[in-house]
């Protein structure tokens, strides 16, 4: 009984410490767990990869803020890397809110430095031919509608301030219909907005990279194929990194993959705590009833 009373009164700061340690210890001891790939991520990877045959551009949208970037930034990196290595024309876009612009910029710089501005086939990455960085345009939903009707007219210039019209990648893009796939990486419901408007209204396939919070909700749309695939949380990002590594032989630091050991340890700790907490609850309840 003493033990359960002790558990009940335990200062929560000890739990914070336990969680912190179960993240730090697997990280510094370099533990690795195998990452198994789930169908939503595999479907997304395959869809992105199929664009190398049609040469229709991919749009990577960084629709998130720094607060969710630990889960979502590795997704942007893995996708951008995949597109460049597979020679798929790609638009990097900071999304409908202001914060994403800077994070898309980080994705651009990180990946280009990692691959040393060179694709797998040895060619140099050329701005305007291989990728284009789109600027922030205000208007939310109106921006998607604008892209659906007149892509160049909506943005006019790229993030560097140069006219979009003059970039070779724009030759085959008039509106959303000409885009091969949109992958919206977001921690909010904005991915649904892209699905409803870009997907349903303009017929562009939409995939999603999301925080684990929203992942459960999006399975509904995966089932009806309104999202062609999904990366759910850091695990989804780790799966995508793994697919890149095994299929494209990309050897870079797996930001999300490294985190999986810590994630597993914390999950085990939480499961243990939940079981312990429930037993404690029932034991104390029964004890209270007996005393009454």
């Amino acid at each position: 009984m003493k033990f359960w009373l002790f558990m009940d009164k335990l200062d929560r700061r000890w739990l914070f410490l336990a969680i912190g340690l179960s993240v730090i210890i697997p990280s510094i001891t370099n533990m690795r767990f195998p990452v198994t790939t789930t169908p939503p991520t595999l479907n997304l990877w395959n869809f992105v990869d199929s664009l190398k045959y049609t040469k229709k551009p991919l749009i990577i949208i960084c629709d998130y803020s720094p607060s969710t970037s630990p889960e979502l930034q590795p997704m942007a990196h893995a996708l951008f890397r995949h597109a460049l290595e597979a020679d798929i024309p790609v638009f990097l876009y900071g999304g409908l809110y202001t914060e994403g612009f800077g994070l898309a910029r980080i994705a651009e710089e990180t990946v280009l430095e990692e691959i040393d501005y060179q694709k797998a086939n040895g060619d140099s990455v050329i701005y305007g031919e291989d990728y284009v960085f789109l600027p922030f345009v205000p208007g939310g939903l109106a921006v998607i509608a604008g892209m659906g009707e007149d892509f160049i007219g909506t943005f006019r210039v790229d993030a560097r301030g140069d006219s979009l019209k003059n970039l070779p990648m724009m030759d085959n893009v008039r509106r959303l219909e000409d885009i091969g796939l949109i992958v919206d990486i977001a921690g909010s419901a904005v991915s649904r907005t892209w699905m409803v408007y870009a997907g349903t209204r303009y017929g562009t396939p939409v995939g999603v990279g999301t925080t684990a919070v929203s992942a459960a909700e999006y399975y509904t749309f995966l089932q009806t194929r309104q999202f062609v695939g999904m990366m759910g949380g850091m695990k989804g990002a780790a799966e995508y990194e793994e697919l890149n590594a095994s299929n494209l032989n990309i050897e870079v630091r797996k930001q999300a993959g490294i985190a999986m050991a810590s994630q597993n340890f914390v999950h085990l700790l939480i499961i243990f705590m939940v079981i312990l907490g429930n037993i404690s609850f029932f034991v104390l309840k029964r004890n209270k009833e007996r005393r009454l």
């Binding site: 949380g233 490294i258 999950h267």
Partner: peptide
């Protein structure tokens, strides 16, 4: 299911920060 996923998300954020520090 949603609760479980949310716990996973919060843990990921902590991992992200600790990775940054380490």
């Amino acid at each position: 299911a949603s609760f479980g996923y949310t716990v996973m998300a919060r843990v990921s954020l902590l991992i992200g920060r600790i990775q940054f520090l380490l």
